[in-house]
């Protein structure tokens, strides 16, 4: 059985888009050591994206020639980097989710051997991403007053995009409600240790629940794609 197309595209787009956003940090990180760390995470994600997209077709055609409405990544990963706290909050929310999901997929939650193998490899990478995000969440949350308030703002601001993470993806046999519960438990533990509180607002607005998976994105995503795709599209049929 070949990998379910909707599933590999959804997971592949998540990884592709987040990798792109992290790539925007190059040369801008708060400290040189963090340049190396963020690039490592971006490269892991790009590797995952390439494997996943290749399961659904030609990786470059899929990355560079689809229109915005055809991308099925969650809206969380397309959110602009903001300050370092925003990037860390996005990393914390997403990598915690991705690790839990890939753990389940590695256990055979897909019925597809290719996807199971990808998940088994990726889960180790993602565990490190989650570790990185947790360590920074602790340091920003429990660091200075400034860092605490920046981290709180970032967590609050991105909270509304987290509900979408647990909308079922066609082709993945996963207990999504259980995943959501475990995610919330882990996030709560980390935030409490970081002297932060779990944001209280709604986790998805009624008009946008699960929108990314259906190809409805936020405005910054269009500009991101325009930048990412312009060179490739300017030379139709060229190879690089």
């Amino acid at each position: 059985m070949s990998a379910p197309r909707t599933a590999v595209l959804a997971l592949g787009d998540d990884a592709l888009v987040l990798s792109h956003r992290l790539g925007e940090w190059a040369g801008n990180a708060p400290v040189l050591e963090e340049e190396v760390a963020l690039a490592n995470i971006a490269l892991d994600l790009l590797g995952q994206a390439r494997t996943l997209l290749s399961m659904a077709g030609d990786e470059d055609e899929l990355a560079y020639l689809r229109e915005e409405r055809a991308f099925t990544n969650v809206q969380l990963v397309e959110q602009p980097n903001g300050d370092f706290a925003h990037t860390i909050a996005r990393q914390l929310y997403f990598s915690t989710y991705q690790e839990l999901l890939y753990e389940r997929l590695a256990d055979g939650g897909t019925g597809d051997t290719e996807l199971t193998a990808l998940a088994a490899k990726a889960v180790k990478e993602v565990a490190y991403h989650r570790d990185h995000a947790e360590h920074w969440t602790l340091r920003l949350g429990d660091g200075t007053e400034v860092s605490h308030s920046r981290m709180r703002d970032a967590l609050d601001g991105l909270w509304r995009y987290t509900g979408e993470l647990f909308r079922p993806v066609e082709g993945l046999d996963v207990d999504w409600a259980g995943l959501d519960e475990e995610w919330a438990r882990r996030i709560t533990t980390v935030l409490e240790r970081a002297t932060l509180t779990v944001p209280g607002g709604p986790r998805s607005s009624p008009w946008a629940a699960g929108a990314g998976r259906q190809g409805v994105h936020t405005e910054p995503f269009g500009r991101m794609l325009a930048e990412m795709q312009h060179l490739h599209r300017s030379h139709p049929g060229a190879s690089w």
Partner: peptide, 14 residues
Amino acid sequence: HAPDAEMALRNARD
């Protein structure tokens, strides 16, 4: 450079 041992270990890995 790292603020503490845990971060030093991670920076070293990277």
